[in-house]
Every structure is written in C-alpha cells, then in structure tokens.
Amino acid sequence: MLDFLKPPVLTIQEFFQLTGRVILNLPRRPHYFKDIVLQMDIIGVGSLPIVLLTGFFSGVVMALQMSRALQTYGAVSQTGPIVAITLVREMGPVLTAIAAAGRNAAGIASELGSMKVTEQIDAMRALGTDPIQKLVKPRLIATCVMLPCLTAIADFVGMLGGFMIATLLLHLTSAEYWNGAYRALAYDDVVQGLLKPFVYAIVISLVGCFYGLRTRGGTQGVGLATTQAVVVSIVWIFVLNAFITKIFVSI
C-alpha cells in the first residue's frame, strides 16, 4: 500500500549515505588540492558574471520598488537601509544560490553523469582512485569556499545598483545612502548572510554529485540527472532558507 513511498525514501537514504561517506573522507588523504583549485575557478570565477548581473539588477529593482512604497510615507531616505537588509539577509544568498544551482549543480551532475555512463567512474575506481575523494570532495570544498564569497560580491554590487537608483532617480546623497545602509546592518545579518550560502553550497554540490553519480542509461539519463539536480537543489534552497530565517528571527 505504501510502496509508492519506497523510491523517494531510498533516494533520501542514498543521499545521506553519500553525505556520510564525504564527511568521513574530508580529513582523509589524498586531498587533490589541484582539483580543489580547478573547481574553485570553475565554480567561483566562472559564476562571477551571472552573479554580478543578478546581484546588480536585484539591487536596482529593490531600490525602485521600495522607493514607491517609501514615498507614500515620505521616507525615501530609508532606501539604503532597506536595500542593504533585504540583500544581505535574503536576496543576495538566495539569488546567488539559485544562479549557482542553475550553473553548477547542472554542470556537476552532467559532468559526473557523463563519466558514469561512459564507465569513467568505474575506471577511476579500478585504477586506484576513490571517486568520492577525487570528484565529490573537491567540488564540495570549492563550492563551500566560493559561494559565500560570491554572495558577498552579489550583496555589494546589489547595493551599488541600489545606490545608482537612490542617487540618480531619488536624489539621495551618497552619504545618506551608505550611512543608512551601514547602520542598518547588524552583526547577525552578516552571519546569516554568510551562513546561508555555506549551507546552500553543501546542498548544491552534494545534490549535483549525487544525481551525477547515480546516472543510468545514456545521454537521456545524463539529461534527466541534470534536470533533477537543478530542481532538487533549488527546492532545498528555498526550504532551508525558510528554516534558517526562522531560526534567526527567533534569536
């Protein structure tokens, strides 16, 4: 009767098995530093253009939307604080993570999936390398290092976008905008803004690796794994965002 629950439960079980193996392997040698640096370049530097664009225009849109509402109360000068808080707490981490999921979870799943269906993963194991160490660990570490950095960059360019609107259209002074933004941000906003991308990085890299490594069939299987990796990681980003936000709101 409950047979329909078996596949999702099995998937979750296998995902946590992979997670457990990765955690156990984190301190183990070899560490493949070259692969970690390569992945940091692909995931971090490679994602920079999309993160800059999404971050900047998020700030622009945020300032434009808020200015309309704030004008009603004659509080346009509050644009800086509102843009800063919204970007650092929510928009920066979530939008950067979604951009990273679309780009990197898909990239990881398709790369590992192609390796799986062409027996390169088996060859790796036969030739003395643990795919968890060689493929999963570098991607996890690289994403965990780079996503918080990308989020900080997205937050900053978003505030720049807001600053552009505030000064050019809303005629605020530079000091009004930046002082307001700086004063509005509390310590826990920054903690929250950097903790979230760290958690999302774990989700994006592990979900990408998980679906890549369990790919079956040929090119169709690779396509399916890629789609699943993106969809699942984005859903988890939103779910975890709600949980983390709830925790910080309660604090």
């Binding site: 062409t118 027996e119 390169q120 060859a123 194991r125 030739l127 643990d130």
Partner: peptide
C-alpha cells in the same frame, strides 16, 4: 579494495579513457 585493485589492470568495453 584499492590495494588489491592495484595488482590488476582492466580494459573497459569502450576504453573508458578520461576524456
């Protein structure tokens, strides 16, 4: 298993070279 596999070699069906 890695130490045992080091004593064996395998040619895979489609070669499975790292592309």
């Amino acid at each position: 298993l890695y130490d045992l596999r080091a004593r064996a070699g395998m040619l895979f069906q489609e070669s499975a070279l790292f592309d």
